[in-house]
Computed example of a mutant assay.
Amino acid sequence: MIRSIKRVVLATLKGAVIVYLMVVAILFFMQRELLFHRTTAPPMLNDASLVQRREIVCLATADGLNLRAWYFRAARPDARTVLFLHGNAGDIGNHLPFARFLIDAGYGVLALEYRGYGGNPGSPSEAGLMDDARAGFAFLQSQDIADRGIVLFGESLGTGVAVAMAAEYAVGAMILRSPYTSMPDVAAEAFWYLPARWLVRDRFDSLSKIARSKAPLFIFHGADDALIPIRLGQELFAAASEPKTWLTVEGVGHNDVQTPEAERAVLDFLAGLPPGPPADAMPAALPPMAACGG
């Protein structure tokens, strides 16, 4: 009887271990599909007022990809241009409403679309998204916009790209919506029952990079964020250099953090920055769209 019970217990434990290892393997090999939960069809801009102001531009990456992005020129010669780095899901069509308040305020916006998203070629990865953002900088430089005339705006996943770019370029400012310390830290929160921290390939280690940026920083985070806990954003903020500003948005989570209050605070932050470099009176010609197939 005892031997029979032992055999059942051992068989159950063996089965549980096999299932556990299978879950670990599935998550490891599918992690990029989970992290880069994207739309692959060309994005839609369902806003007639913005369609007239949008220019579809072609960005050339260092590894040979040609990416379509959406460009909205600054309405004022003294206004900075925002490099908008969206979150992990959907495409720029889903995320552009989060940049609408900046466009309406007269700021320029280059809404970057990543590789593998929104009909663009390639497959997303941490290194790939960094190359995509660098292509965005190259485009803005071709438009005679100095690095200190650029503001980085990263949301969620895009905050990791923004922090890395702020460590490389002397930008005018950086705005982070719901940021994290690193992707392993986020994975450890979501999959606490797995060795997730050691399985993550695309690490987006913002915590180790943010102090290298000397640009004025504004972070806002939802108090009830269940996807990226607010303490991760606070830890990142603590590691950042001055000058920096923090806003806790009470009563909201991850997806509804960009309230009118938060947008007003972002605009106040931008208005309080030192004057940016003068814009060129004659913008450079846009790259030919033929390179992007259209």
Rank of each mutant, 00 (worst) to 15 (best):
residue 216 P to L: 03
residue 258 Q to R: 06
residue 117 Y to R: 00
residue 287 P to Q: 05
residue 67 L to W: 04
residue 279 A to Q: 12
residue 268 D to C: 03
residue 202 D to R: 05
residue 64 G to M: 09
residue 256 D to F: 09
residue 193 Y to R: 11
residue 1 M to A: 15
residue 175 I to T: 02
residue 62 A to P: 00
residue 87 G to H: 04
residue 50 L to E: 02
residue 131 D to G: 12
residue 48 A to N: 12
residue 244 K to D: 10
residue 129 L to P: 00
residue 44 M to I: 11
residue 74 A to T: 05
residue 277 P to S: 10
residue 292 C to Y: 09
residue 195 P to F: 02
residue 56 I to N: 11
residue 255 N to Q: 12
residue 271 A to H: 11
residue 80 R to V: 07
residue 246 W to T: 08
residue 174 M to N: 06
residue 26 I to K: 00
residue 16 A to C: 13
residue 206 S to I: 01
residue 31 Q to K: 05
residue 225 D to F: 01
residue 245 T to E: 07
residue 150 I to F: 02
residue 130 M to F: 15
residue 294 G to A: 12
residue 79 A to M: 09
residue 245 T to K: 12
residue 131 D to V: 01
residue 40 T to R: 15
residue 229 P to V: 09
residue 265 A to T: 10
residue 113 E to Q: 14
residue 235 E to D: 15
residue 208 S to N: 10
residue 282 M to Q: 14
residue 85 L to E: 00
residue 232 L to I: 01
residue 119 G to K: 03
residue 245 T to L: 04
residue 147 D to E: 13
residue 280 D to P: 00
residue 290 A to Y: 06
residue 128 G to I: 07
residue 23 V to P: 01
residue 133 A to I: 04
residue 117 Y to G: 00
residue 107 Y to T: 01
residue 260 P to T: 08
residue 62 A to T: 13
residue 130 M to W: 13
residue 275 P to Q: 07
residue 291 A to W: 10
residue 158 G to Y: 00
residue 11 A to W: 09
residue 166 A to R: 04
residue 116 G to H: 08
residue 144 D to E: 11
residue 230 I to K: 06
residue 106 G to H: 03
residue 167 A to H: 02
residue 230 I to D: 04
residue 64 G to F: 10
residue 271 A to S: 13
residue 10 L to W: 14
residue 247 L to H: 09
residue 101 F to C: 09
residue 22 M to V: 15
residue 227 L to G: 00
residue 250 E to H: 14
residue 136 G to Y: 02
residue 166 A to H: 02
residue 80 R to C: 06
residue 209 K to Q: 15
residue 290 A to K: 12
residue 143 Q to N: 07
residue 236 L to T: 01
residue 215 A to C: 08
residue 17 V to A: 15
residue 2 I to W: 13
residue 244 K to P: 10
residue 116 G to T: 06
residue 6 K to I: 15
residue 106 G to M: 09
residue 66 N to E: 13
residue 216 P to Q: 03
residue 181 T to F: 03
residue 283 P to I: 11
residue 274 P to E: 09
residue 60 A to G: 07
residue 262 A to T: 06
residue 82 V to M: 08
residue 276 G to A: 12
residue 265 A to K: 08
